[in-house]
Amino acid sequence: MEAIDLVTGVGLVLGAFFFCAGTIALLRFPDIYTRLHALTKGDNVGLALVLLALSFQAGSWSEVCALLLIWLLVMVASSTTSFLIAQAAQRKGVKPWTR
């Protein structure tokens, strides 16, 4: 196994960890706002790590660009949707969780 493969492997495992953390938070956190917070943060970092890891395996710069583009698009989409969900919840009168 070459060093570059090792870097990829570590990146993928780390990314998977962040995805897992985000998912557990989705299941365990008390209200919609905190869940959104955890989910978007965790998944964005996780995705970034996975894509970074994969870009080491890319055969050309255009593939790296494609991976970058995927990351950017997912970022735009997830931030917009999480904003819209939170906004809808607020309009419906869902109160943020307090201890």
Partner: peptide, 14 residues
């Protein structure tokens, strides 16, 4: 809201 408008403006051409 402006958020969705902006999103469509960004993503639409793509």
């Amino acid at each position: 809201g402006p958020m969705l408008q902006g999103f469509v403006g960004t993503v639409g051409p793509i």
